[in-house]
């Protein structure tokens, strides 16, 4: 069954009197426990789709349904229990003056969930951070460690869906590998559904079952992972993206 349904979604921004259509009638659907990838160049609108799902971008047309239900505006607590997002830049997405403990326990406090001591400790262990990190501040952590904290925070409310916006593009290759392995393990253990954005086709190929290629706010082509590996694309744009990525593999 489709858990996430995006129907003819359009997002329009108004800047300096210009209308910019960041997303133009894009549809996609992600099944329960599936991992779906959005790929394209910067400015193609892929991150905007994630932001629109969370209510962080103005929807000018179309519909978003989670588990068959249209999402409420504003999104509300029930939505946060179901859907959480991990942002691209772990340097910008954690509050610089909050300890890791406060960052992780805040969602619990908002939702009135008790037992926060145990939950925070469990969350740190789950993402492979030593419990001694609990009372540190973000600036005392490396980029990879911060991204682990961001993932832990997203999982505090035990959501079904993780929206991942370039979760590893700010990280070194070795740290990227560790972070991707962590995400795969958590998906397996918790039966999570991923909607993941990346400009790196190799990362999308590694993590996702199906891929949607975007350009200039529009959906260009969707295909299963097997077709990606075999280079079976129908559109020239998807092929050029594949060629540029494959060439880099050496």
């Amino acid at each position: 069954m489709a858990l996430i349904e995006v129907d003819n979604l359009s997002v329009t921004f108004l800047t300096k009197g210009h209308r910019v259509r960041a997303v133009d009638s894009v549809s996609l659907s992600v099944d329960t426990r599936e991992s779906f990838g959005l790929v394209g160049e910067s400015g193609s609108g892929k991150s905007t789709i994630l932001r629109a799902i969370c209510g962080l971008a103005p929807i000018s047309g179309g519909a978003i349904r989670i588990g068959g239900e249209p999402v409420a505006t504003p999104r509300g607590k029930a939505f946060s229990r179901k859907v959480q997002m991990v942002f691209q830049d772990p340097y910008a997405s954690l509050h610089p003056r909050h300890t890791i403990d406060r960052t992780l326990s805040e969602p619990l406090a908002i939702h009135g969930i008790g037992d926060s001591d145990r939950r925070v400790m469990a969350a740190l262990a789950d993402v492979g951070l030593p419990t001694g990190f609990r009372f540190r501040y973000p600036h005392q952590l490396s980029g990879g460690q911060r991204q682990r904290v961001a993932i832990a925070r997203a999982l505090m409310l035990e959501p079904e869906i993780l929206l991942l916006d370039e979760p590893t593009s700010a990280l070194d290759a070795s740290v990227q590998a560790e972070t991707l392995n962590l995400l795969s393990r958590l998906r397996e253990e918790r039966g999570l559904t991923f909607l993941m954005v990346s400009h790196d086709l190799a990362v999308i190929d590694h993590m996702c079952d199906r891929v949607l290629v975007m350009q200039h706010g529009r959906a260009v082509e969707e295909f299963p992972r097997a077709d990606l590996a075999a280079g079976r694309m129908k559109t020239d744009y998807a092929r050029s993206l594949f060629a540029a990525s494959a060439e880099r593999m050496g």
Partner: peptide
């Protein structure tokens, strides 16, 4: 070698990436 191996590649396995 470790830096080279830990990169995902298109058409590679979806299993855990080798860590460094």
């Amino acid at each position: 070698q470790g830096l080279l191996n830990c990169l995902p590649r298109i058409g590679g396995s979806q299993g855990p990436l080798p860590s460094l």
